[in-house]
Design a protein around this nucleic acid. Structure first.
Length: 859
RNA sequence: GCCGGUGUGGCGGAAUGGCAGACGCGACCGACUCAAACUCGGUUGCCCGCGAGGGCGUGUGGGUUCGACUCCCACCACCGGCACCA
């Protein structure tokens, strides 16, 4: 016989024809459609299981294999537990790769996109995933993106979508703007090009209005989302609390506000710094001498030439120019010289700071570089009530006198180290003697009394820039009239459809290619009928994915974005799984949009995903796989080679869900052997289906029922690798009874084989269906309920008790499970081995935990 | 610098404070075979010992406990996030 790929695969799969089984059951599933979610007449409790939908760039990779395996395991589990499960799939099909491929091939991005979707769809079918295939959506379909435009209008009505001019992140390679979240280490998240700042007027979503809720609501996700993701979102939102303080500026009409987290140190302010690239700096310089103006201009140019990457480098020497202007400290009337320096950022806080060099390291570095005064206002050597004094011990355990017990020895002006710790206020007028906490409260009170300051919060989070100067995305549904008004396209005129690419140049050139689609751009004001032009930009594709989980609930509804009724029934998503790369981008945006929809009264929940799992990556040889490195393991290839079940079991067994899995450590041979053994066990069963369960080999029955006891918990804890291990134990135990125990006719063998099929369905659904049929049942095992453990089988009749002497195991006793502590202790004391180990030493203490442990102490 | 996470055999990993290393891979031995592959059975943490048995062992050092991979403190290493954020 010649070796074809199929026979090779059969050999690899341990002698059975995995591919024939696979195709057979996939055909049956396609005919019967057993995994479609139930409708209104379905009274089972609901579970919404979702894996982050794929972007259709080329074929699926091993990361997808993991993602859709894990969600499928969970979906199948809940069906077995009697739930009505929604497990949908769709495609996140707008975006740059399609556009870039189209440019390269001189084609329409649609072709490339929909070809890839077809290919990925075929792979997922072949993988045996129990999706509800009736709900497929593609975000690049007008039927979908129409609702992006609807969402935009709703946000716009509420002032949550707005236009502003601002210095934005610009990717010179992709020729488009980027959201803050898409800039990683000063580089474009997509292509790695160094991002530059550019002043542009763009559309934003006002996510900052939700900053507090986005931050505070993370607490209710604690324990349900990975701790790491919660922490990353907290960092990203970056709330600081403190005070806004108004400083009058000499010769300037209005006061300037600064934010400080340490308003208690206001008396220690010795100068004032503005961001050189802020409007304020330009204004202040304009009112100064010609010489200052020149110096400032030179400095500004230098700053603007510095790349974001260089600017973010820590330990840069402080630079700046004195603007020969003065700010007035509102608490003591002191004149503070105003400097422009690039260590102050234009887009954080108010773009200006009060500098307190004694108690802020950056201000101190600057003061020392330019010889500015340093005034200590917090005595950090003074004890603070409630603070726990730290006493350090030297090598001999003798307390070391804290150095700097004398304030003079820790003077920041000479040490160069700012005093940022707790202490008592000094040189601060009415604040003297107060602790930091009390001083902050007092100074805010005083400032509020004179109207020169107030408690305030500042965030790191910026508004979400959603305009993109590219073709393959949702057109922004706004028109610009000749007289400069910006008018929304009314709902009944949506969708604003993308034009064909015919005659369009998609090559990135800094403005949207849609601007050149003259016919498309030219329109009329929907209110007045006057000539107008369409907004040529498209939306960030993260808008598409910020609400897709709601569209899955009524994907074919032409009347509304999603059904509020269905959202009440299914939402929020019960189990969400995807890669950690979306920890802030997608997950933050989806949370924001959900809260906005809640405020509109369209959903009844404020968090979209009740639980979240980040699966690890599939790597190779310790390194991330990538096309450029040429170390790719291709999903479709592995699928053809091993078959779906072997691949699924191998991945599920490879390790914990959240851990990275090195493909070198993923054992397809082990998985294939196990599946073959499981099938053989089912085939060996000779008893008829209607069997009396209470009979048969007791030891095997205990293995079976312990698994029935543990499996649900293990699956809910996503310990899939352990469930597979336990199934292997069960199959091994069954094999043993068949070969060298009660034999194949024993009812316990059938009971074990049926349990194997029912639980194996999570991991190897084709093999499980085959076993189920072999055992004489009608399909589908995927819909058959799991069984309850028999409680009487969970208690062992006899157990192994451990005897410890001084913490070391010195012997074991086989004892009845219900032995009393006294009996057990007596047995232990009398045990020949224990007596020998004691060697005459006296037992000073005995701790007995029947029936498991006896612990003797001898000293 | 700040915040978070992780350290267990040759490898992937398991273990409600109670026999560390389940399960699998790999390796070795054996059965089947003319032979190999497949399959099946056995051994496999390290050290000493022919053996019975003993010693050591979950990154390091301490602590709590009759008993610690597990809880507490300090440290080391690696990984991740943020970072001139006022």
């Amino acid at each position: 016989m010649t070796s074809t790929p199929d026979t090779a695969a059969a050999a690899d799969s341990g002698g059975f024809d995995a591919h024939a089984i696979q195709e057979k059951w996939q055909r049956r599933w396609a005919e019967a459609d057993p995994f479609r979610a139930g409708g209104d007449d379905d009274t089972r409790p609901r579970k919404y299981v979702l894996a982050m939908f794929p972007y259709p760039s080329g074929d699926l990779h091993m990361g997808h294999a993991e993602n859709y395996l894990y969600s499928d395991i969970v979906a199948r589990f809940w069906r077995h537990r009697g739930h009505n499960v929604l497990n949908p799939i769709g495609w996140d099909s707008f975006g740059l790769p399609a556009e870039n491929a189209a440019i390269k091939r001189g084609a329409d991005p649609r072709e490339w996109t929909y070809e890839n979707i077809a290919q990925q769809r075929a792979s997922l079918h072949q993988y045996g995933v129990s999706f509800d295939w009736s709900r497929v959506l593609r975000t690049s379909d007008p039927e979908y993106y129409r609702w992006n435009q609807w969402l935009f209008q709703r946000l716009h009505e509420r002032g949550l979508a707005y236009r502003k001019e601002s210095a934005v992140n610009w990717c010179p390679n992709d020729q488009t703007v980027l959201a803050n979240e898409q800039v990683v280490d000063g580089r474009c998240e997509r292509c790695g090009a160094e991002v530059v700042k550019k002043k542009l007027t763009q559309w934003y979503f006002r996510i900052t209005q939700y900053a507090d809720r986005l931050l505070d609501d993370l607490n209710q996700l604690e324990g349900f989302w990975p701790h790491k993701v919660l922490q990353m979102q907290r960092n990203w939102i970056g709330r600081s609390t403190g005070a806004d303080i108004d400083f009058a500026i000499e010769g300037h009409p209005s006061p300037v506000t600064v934010f400080s987290t340490r308003p208690d140190t206001l008396h220690g302010a010795t100068f004032f710094v503005v961001a050189p690239d802020s409007d304020l700096a330009a204004e202040l310089a304009a009112g100064a001498s010609a010489e200052v103006r020149t110096r400032f201009q030179d400095y500004l140019e230098r700053v603007q030439k510095t790349s974001e990457i260089d600017r973010q480098t820590a330990d840069r020497a402080k630079t700046g120019v004195f603007l020969e202007r003065y700010a007035i400290n509102p608490i003591n009337g002191e004149r503070l010289p105003i400097w422009a320096a690039d260590y102050v950022l234009a887009d954080y806080g108010h773009g200006a700071v009060m500098a307190v060099p004694a108690h802020d390291q950056r201000d101190l570095d600057f003061a020392r570089a330019f010889d500015l005064p340093v005034r200590v206002v917090v005595d950090t050597t003074a004890p603070v009530t409630g603070a726990i004094p730290v006493i350090e011990l030297d090598d001999d355990g003798v307390p070391i006198e804290p150095e700097g017990a004398d304030l003079a020895t820790i003077d920041p002006a000479s040490t160069g180290v700012a005093l940022t710790g707790e202490g008592r206020m000094v040189n601060s007028g009415s604040l003297d003697g107060l602790s930091k906490r009390n001083a902050i409260a007092r100074v805010i009170e005083e400032l509020e009394a004179t109207g020169r300051g107030r408690a305030a919060k500042t965030y790191r989070l910026r508004d979400w820039l959603i305009s993109r100067q590219r073709f393959w995305g949702t057109p922004i549904p706004m028109v610009h009239t000749d007289d400069g008004r910006i008018v929304p396209v009314p709902d009944d005129q949506l969708p604003v459809q993308l034009p064909t690419v015919q005659g369009l140049d998609l090559t990135p050139k800094g403005s949207s290619p849609l601007g050149a689609a003259t016919e498309w751009v030219t329109t009329t004001d929907p209110e007045t009928g006057e000539p107008a032009r369409r907004d040529p930009d498209t939306m960030d594709t993260f808008v598409d994915s910020s609400w897709y989980f709601l569209r899955f609930l009524s994907p074919n509804d032409a009347a509304e974005a999603f059904s509020a009724r269905e959202a009440d029934k299914w939402g929020p998503v019960d189990f969400y799984i995807g890669g950690v790369e979306h920890a802030i981008l997608h997950l933050l945006y989806a949370r924001f949009i959900t809260k906005a929809l809640f405020d509109m009264g369209l959903v009844e929940f404020t968090e979209p995903f009740s639980s979240l799992i980040n699966q690890g990556m599939v790597i190779l040889g310790g390194a991330k796989m990538s096309k450029s490195k040429g170390n790719l393991v291709l999903f479709q290839e592995e699928l053809n080679l091993h078959g779906a079940d072997t691949l699924r079991v191998a991945l599920a067994f490879a390790g914990p869900v959240e851990d990275d899995k090195d493909w070198d450590d993923v054992s397809t041979t082990g998985a294939a052997k196990f599946l073959a053994r499981a099938l053989r066990v089912a085939a060996d069963v000779t008893s008829a289906p209607e069997v009396v369960w209470a009979e048969g080999d007791a030891a095997l029955r205990r293995v079976t029922h312990r698994l029935w006891q543990d499996a649900p918990t293990l699956v809910e804890q996503t310990k899939f690798n352990v469930v597979v291990a336990r199934l292997m134990e069960l199959v091994n135990a069954t094999r043993k009874v068949i070969d060298s125990g009660a034999g194949a006719a024993d009812p316990a063998v059938r009971e074990a084989a049926e349990a194997t099929a029912l639980i194996l369905d999570l991991f190897a659904p084709h093999t499980a269906e085959e076993m189920w049929a072999t055992l004489g049942y009608q399909p589908f095992v995927g819909l058959a309920p799991w069984r309850q453990p028999d409680a009487t089988l969970l208690v062992e009749e006899s157990v192994t008790a451990v005897v410890q002497i001084d913490g070391k195991v010195r012997g074991t006793l086989t004892v009845p499970a219900r032995i009393s502590s006294d009996e057990l202790e007596a047995l232990a004391r009398g045990d020949e081995r224990i007596v020998r180990s004691l060697a005459g030493r006296e037992i000073t203490r005995a701790v007995v935990r029947a029936p498991k442990v006896v612990s003797f102490s001898t000293r």
